[in-house]
């Protein structure tokens, strides 16, 4: 039987072994991850916690196939990511992973509607379906009245919600979020938490970096990173 079906049988959607990431800035080399072993089962909700600079975002980028590890092995649904071709990676990023960036990474010149629509364009979704989907998502994150605003015309919290809507556009089965409630007051932060809980209940695999203890408690598993290594890994 193939690797894929074995992995699925095991329930492992994410499997990392000895992952290292060294940033080479020319003068100095920063070893942001120093050997990460991590397995995440399909349908788990993992909260990643740890101090600033410990390597959380670095790990998340690798899980989302947005960066290449210096060392180690990474399998997504049993498939070695290192062996994927560029177009396969593009498809994974488009269909399987929804990524909420710590700094949002919205395109500033276009409206929030168009930002959310972008993954649907790359996914080749028809115009009618795109519009329907974007409107639905914008309502869902409470920005139904801000669709024509450009990111620069939105508050930090509103931008964050646009980023969440964009991550969910292609209905991914893995949601990766880097501090999704970092810029939100407790009320809209609570809304996002509700949304994430709902997404999890629908069977998605969630990996969320957070400093927010309330959000971390919602997860079924807490992974703590210190200085590029996983120090604690608890399931509740």
């Amino acid at each position: 039987m193939s690797d894929t079906s074995k992995a699925l049988a095991n329930g492992n959607i994410i499997r990392m072994e000895g992952i290292r990431k060294v940033y080479d800035t020319g003068k100095i080399q920063v070893e942001a991850l120093r050997g990460i072993d991590l397995e995440v089962d399909t349908g788990e909700f993992v909260a990643v916690i740890g101090p600033s600079g410990s390597g959380k975002s670095t790990l998340m980028n690798l899980i989302g196939c947005l960066d290449t590890p210096t060392d180690g092995h990474y399998e997504l649904s049993g498939q070695s990511v290192a062996k994927m071709k560029k177009d396969e990676l593009a498809t994974v990023r488009n269909r399987r992973v929804g990524f909420v960036f710590q700094n949002f990474n919205l395109l500033p010149q276009i409206s929030s509607f168009e930002n959310v629509e972008m993954p649907l364009l790359f996914g080749g979704v028809s115009r009618r379906k795109r519009h329907q989907r974007v409107e639905e998502l914008m309502e869902r994150v409470g920005l139904g009245d801000r669709m024509d605003h450009k990111p620069t015309e939105l508050s930090g919290g509103q931008m964050q919600r646009v980023a969440v809507a964009r991550a969910l556009a292609m209905d991914p089965d893995i949601v990766l979020a880097d501090e999704p409630t970092g810029n939100l007051d407790s009320s809209s932060g609570g809304d996002i938490m509700e949304l994430f809980a709902e997404l999890w209940e629908q069977g998605r695999t969630m990996v969320v970096i957070t400093h927010d203890a309330a959000l971390a408690r919602r997860a079924n598993r807490q992974v703590e990173i210190h200085d590029g290594l996983i120090t604690t890994d608890t399931r509740s």
């Binding site: 989302g64 947005l66 560029k86 177009d87 593009a90 498809t91 990023r93 488009n94 269909r95 990524f99 960036f101 990474n105 395109l107 972008m118 993954p119 790359f122 996914g123 964009r166 292609m170």
Partner: peptide
Amino acid sequence: PEVGVKMALGAKPRG
């Protein structure tokens, strides 16, 4: 950077 964002969202190099 814009190209980076687009690729993160699933744009193909060819596209």
